[in-house]
Simulated scan of single mutants.
Amino acid sequence: MATNVVLDVDPGHDDAIALLLALGHEAVEVDAVTTVAGNGTLPKTTRNARRVLALADRADVPVAAGMAEPLVRSDDVIATPEVHGESALDGPDLPEPDRDAVDDHAVDVIRDAAREGSVTLVPTGPLTNVATALRQYPAVEDGIDGIVLMGGAAGTGNYTPAAEYNILVDPEAAAVVFDADVPVTMVGLDVTRESRLGRADIERIRGFGDPVGPTVAAWLDYFIGWHEEQYGRESVPVHDALAVGAVIDPGLVETEHLHVAVETSGDHTLGRTVCDRYGVRDAEPNAHVALGVDRGGFVDLLCGTLEAYSA
């Protein structure tokens, strides 16, 4: 039986690949796609989500735009043109969207999905939409089976030494999500960095039929260029796709049930997800934190799903 999901995204190359993985796999049923400001402004991320749905020929899936700024840090909005380009999804040409975003706000779409019951939220950007839904409509907790998010790290960050990007953009929202009475799985940098795609993987994807295989390969060509320049590595993490992979096959990641606190005030540690692996704070665990990954299984799952688009 398929898992009903709402994907909350800020495309972004890895968000786009996560969308294709979710849309193309029979184990999940995508009820809606909601967008948030993050890798780009809200108009950019919403347009990008709609273009990815057009690429996948899935105009049946509604897209709803959400929060354009973090909960309390409107002066500190972060975009990443240095990583994802000015469009937030630079690289190959994409089809024009064949459906407008719906009029409903993303927060209300999340609320309605939860009211229908048995939905899993998969946020792969800043957590502003999800936190706002939890704060405005506390009863939604009853209809959310779980939140499987890409964000955070038990170890080091990527946008700062301490913080992973999605959490750093809106740490107050992240704190709301981790404090919610909902099962949370944190798929963070500890595992996404260990499930990188190399040049051979990209060539494998390029060999799949039009239009998805060559497009994804071109996205990865663009994305890997920044990682080579920044880190000197000829491989690239597809962070957000692993969160979707963990919904499709939870066995891809090994987790520990830990208490996670989000730093919202540190001068050097703002946005850090503080994972209490040794129980020193005597606080109840509130998240299943992914610390191990089956890289080969993830790559095969991703490639098999992308290849099926050309079948």
Rank of each mutant, 00 (worst) to 15 (best):
L7S: 00
P11K: 01
G12Q: 04
A18W: 01
A18P: 10
A18T: 04
H25I: 02
H25A: 06
E26G: 09
A27F: 08
A27R: 15
V30F: 08
A32E: 05
A32G: 03
T34S: 03
T35Q: 06
T35E: 08
V36K: 03
A37V: 08
N39Y: 03
L42G: 02
P43F: 10
T46C: 07
T46I: 07
R51E: 13
V52W: 01
L53Y: 02
L53T: 08
A54L: 13
A56C: 03
D57W: 11
V61E: 11
A64G: 03
E69V: 14
P70N: 06
P70V: 02
R73A: 09
R73H: 11
S74E: 14
S74W: 04
S74K: 10
D75L: 14
I78Q: 11
P81T: 05
E82Q: 14
E82L: 12
H84Y: 14
E86I: 08
A88Y: 05
A88G: 00
L89T: 02
P92Y: 09
R99D: 03
R99I: 06
R99Q: 09
R99W: 13
V102M: 09
A106Y: 07
V107P: 00
V107I: 09
A113Q: 03
A114H: 04
L121G: 01
G125E: 07
P126A: 06
P126C: 01
T128H: 01
V130E: 04
A133S: 07
R135E: 12
V140S: 01
V140R: 00
D142N: 12
D145N: 06
I147D: 02
M150D: 10
M150K: 13
G151N: 04
A154P: 07
T156Q: 09
Y159D: 10
E164M: 06
E164P: 02
Y165A: 12
P171S: 04
A173C: 03
V177W: 02
T185N: 07
M186W: 09
M186L: 15
G188D: 12
G188T: 12
G188V: 10
R196V: 15
L197Q: 11
R199H: 13
A200Q: 15
I202F: 05
R204T: 15
I205H: 08
I205E: 07
R206L: 01
F208Q: 03
F208N: 03
G213S: 07
P214R: 03
W219T: 00
L220G: 01
L220V: 04
Y222T: 13
Y222H: 14
Y222P: 06
Q230K: 15
G232A: 01
R233W: 08
H239G: 15
I248A: 04
L252F: 11
L252S: 11
L252D: 14
V253Y: 07
V253G: 11
E254V: 12
T255R: 09
E256K: 15
H257L: 09
L258T: 08
V260S: 06
V262R: 04
V262G: 07
T264R: 06
S265R: 05
D267H: 11
H268F: 13
T269L: 09
L270W: 06
Y278H: 15
R281K: 10
A283V: 05
E284L: 06
E284K: 13
H288D: 15
H288I: 00
H288F: 10
A290S: 14
V293H: 10
V293F: 14
V293Y: 10
G297A: 13
F298Q: 13
L306P: 00
L306S: 00
Y309C: 04
Y309V: 08
S310D: 11
